[in-house]
C-alpha cells in the first residue's frame, strides 16, 4: 500500500456530518475537510472557516474595469483621434458611463471567478479524495469527513479512535 493520506469517515445525513465537523474543529485539527454533494447551511461555522476571500478579487476586478473603461474612451475619442460630433465635449464621464459600467461588471466577474479557482486551487484533477471509489457517493447523497496524516495532531491509532467516536457509518484509510 502506498503512503497513507489520512482517515476517511462516511456519514448518512447532513446533521451527522455537521456534528462530527464541530467535534473535529473543537479537537483542534488543522488539515481536514468535509466532502458533501451540496453546500450544507452552517457548515462553514461548524468547520470554523473564515469568510471567503473571493470579494477581495471582485473589488480589484471591478475597479480595474471601471478605470479601464473610462481611460479607453478618453484615449480613443479624446486623445488618439479626436472625434468632434455636434460640438459635444470630446470626453465626458456621462457618455462614458454605460460602457465603463459594463466593463466594471465584466472585469468583476472575471476576477471573482479567477479568485474562486485560485483560492480553491482548481483545476486539480488529481486528489486522494477523488481516488477512492466510495467518494463518488459524495457527489450523490453521502457525506464524508477526512483528517490528513499531515496534520500536526495526527496519530495513527489515536486519530482513528477519535474518528470512530464521531459515529460514522464507516471508517477507512485514504491512500496518497
Amino acid at each position: 500500500m502506498a503512503d497513507k493520506f489520512g482517515i476517511l469517515a462516511k456519514f448518512d445525513t447532513p446533521a451527522d456530518i455537521m456534528h462530527a465537523a464541530e467535534k473535529v474543529r473543537d479537537a483542534g485539527f488543522k488539515r481536514w475537510d468535509v466532502i458533501t454533494p451540496f453546500p450544507i447551511h452552517g457548515m462553514d461555522g461548524a468547520m470554523g472557516l473564515k469568510r471567503s476571500w473571493v470579494p477581495r478579487f471582485t473589488i480589484v476586478g471591478g475597479t480595474t474595469g471601471f478605470i479601464a473603461g473610462m481611460s479607453m474612451i478618453f484615449f480613443t475619442n479624446a486623445f488618439d483621434y479626436k472625434i468632434l460630433i455636434g460640438g459635444k465635449p470630446l470626453f465626458s464621464p456621462f457618455f462614458a458611463f454605460p460602457v465603463s459600467y459594463e466593463l466594471t461588471i465584466l472585469f468583476s466577474a472575471f476576477a471573482s471567478i479567477a479568485g474562486m479557482f485560485i483560492l480553491n486551487k482548481l483545476p486539480m484533477h488529481y486528489h486522494p479524495a477523488l481516488k477512492i471509489d466510495r467518494v463518488a457517493e459524495a457527489s450523490d447523497d453521502k457525506f464524508f469527513l477526512y483528517i490528513e496524516s499531515e496534520d500536526p495532531q495526527y496519530d495513527d491509532t489515536k486519530t482513528r479512535s477519535f474518528v470512530e467516536g464521531l459515529h460514522p457509518v464507516e471508517v477507512s484509510d485514504m491512500e496518497a
Binding site: A21, D33, V34, I35, T36, P37, P39, I40, M43, D44, M47, L49, R51, S52, W53, V54, P55, T58, P98, Y101, E102, I105, S108, A109, S112, I113, G115, M116, F117, L119, N120, L122, P123, M124, H125, Y126, H127, A129, L130, V135, A138, S139
Partner: peptide
C-alpha cells in the same frame, strides 16, 4: 475542473455564486 465537493471549496464557491448573482442583477437591468 477536479471538483470534489470539499466544504473548503463550497465556502468560496458559494461566495462566488452570490457575487455573480449580485453582479448579474445590475447587469441584466442595464
Amino acid at each position: 475542473m477536479g471538483w470534489r465537493g470539499s466544504n473548503r471549496h463550497w465556502s468560496n464557491y458559494e461566495m462566488l455564486y452570490l457575487i455573480l448573482a449580485g453582479l448579474s442583477t445590475p447587469l441584466v437591468l442595464s
